[in-house]
Design a protein around this nucleic acid. Structure first.
Length: 346
DNA sequence: TCTGGGGTCCTAGGACCC
DNA sequence: TCTGGGGTCCTAGGACCC
């Protein structure tokens, strides 16, 4: 029997901002794009609980957030600040686990299977971790403890903020059944919609549906979801592997049709990627260009080289060539992106 | 209402090889 | 005229996560 813990920092970006600037405490803090008096182009990264009480959520268009709460404190993300705070918290968490897997800047899985003998002990450890993170980093987190990663993650989200949820093997189906299918990691907006169309809203309903029926509408994902709805997740806590790709993308202030500024932007992306490649000691073999036209029509073109390189002019020239294929369409461009993959260590 | 930017993983078809 | 089976790589697109 495994004992897995998932730790999730509460409203991470706004919480770090409030920690650094106590005068923000109690205010609706929204970290994301510049709202520009409601005309901004971008989304909310993360909102404090005060901001959430206005209906503001992550990934919401910033223009809509502005309309919901014009008096809010709107901040641009300071990734270096968040990364430093994250590193400190992760160091604390790592020290309590047999095996440790970072699941993002603000969350991690801990395998406690040999550190605790039962869920009661695990609960004690969880409370100590919550207190330690609060005392040493002045940040609040929520924790789920369960027999596998998926259940632990659903658990950490169950009672936020500063919540602890323990799910024993016996309680699994009782716990999952009433929850919405969207709570299953891997069910996003698209899959949720398909399930709703099939009349499936709760995890209990999903668990009770014929897996063949699910497979007809969702392909192989259908069977995996049916397993997950039973509370089954065999995936292991694994030490994070090497980076697989490095990319940059930008959305223009307004959709543009002129080739020159698009190609200039492409050059800038290539330069940024190359400097990161040098810093990390990687070479790449595959180049992918992404373009988004007006109305959100999005396409990619990629090209693999016969050799690995970190040469800026090769990246820039291939990037230009690939984006040129799209510019012939003479349509307004909203976004361009560049990504390199098939990475090798230098 | 209008949708960022950093990523990962999966699928599916076609090329190519044995 | 009809033509396998398996493996790997490449490309494009899609869904998802934070």
């Amino acid at each position: 029997m495994r004992t897995i813990m998932h730790v999730d920092l509460d409203a991470f970006y706004p919480s770090v901002e409030v920690r650094e600037r106590p005068e923000l405490k109690g205010k609706p803090v929204i970290v994301g794009a510049d709202p520009k008096e409601g005309r901004g182009r971008g989304v909310v990264n993360s909102a404090s609980y005060e901001a959430r009480s206005f209906g503001i959520r992550s990934a919401m268009p910033i223009s809509r957030a502005w309309r919901l709460c014009p008096q809010g404190v709107y901040l641009r993300p300071d990734h270096e600040l968040y990364q430093r705070a994250s590193n400190n918290v992760m160091r604390i968490l790592r020290s309590h686990a047999d095996r440790f897997e970072q699941g993002g800047i603000d969350e991690a899985y801990l395998d406690l299977s040999t550190r605790v003998q039962d869920l009661h002990q695990a609960a004690g450890l969880a409370r100590r971790i919550m207190e330690e993170v609060l005392e040493r980093e002045a940040l609040s987190c929520s924790i789920g403890v369960a027999p596998n990663k998926m259940l632990a993650k659903i658990g950490s989200d169950f009672k936020k903020p500063y919540g602890l949820t323990i799910i024993s093997e016996k309680e699994v189906s009782e716990f999952l059944s009433p929850l919405e299918v969207r709570k299953i990691p891997g069910v996003g907006p698209r899959t949720e919609e398909i399930l709703h169309d099939l009349g499936i809203r709760s995890i209990g309903q999903l668990a009770g549906t014929d897996p063949d029926h699910l497979a007809r509408h969702l392909g192989s994902l259908g069977r995996r979801l049916h397993q997950r709805a039973q509370g089954i997740d065999p995936s292991e806590v694994v030490v994070d592997g090497e980076t697989k790709s490095i990319g940059r993308e930008v959305t223009f202030e307004r959709d543009i049709i002129d080739a020159a500024p698009i190609l200039e932007t492409m050059d800038g992306l290539a330069e940024e990627i190359c400097s990161e490649l040098l810093q990390c000691g990687f070479r790449f073999r595959t180049i992918t260009v992404k373009i988004r036209f007006e109305h959100f029509d999005t396409f990619t073109r990629s090209r693999s080289l016969a050799f690995a390189t970190n040469d800026l002019s090769i990246l820039r020239n291939n990037g230009r060539r690939l984006v040129d294929l799209f510019l012939r369409r003479q349509k307004r461009v909203r976004l361009i992106g560049l990504r390199v993959s098939a990475l090798n260590r230098l």
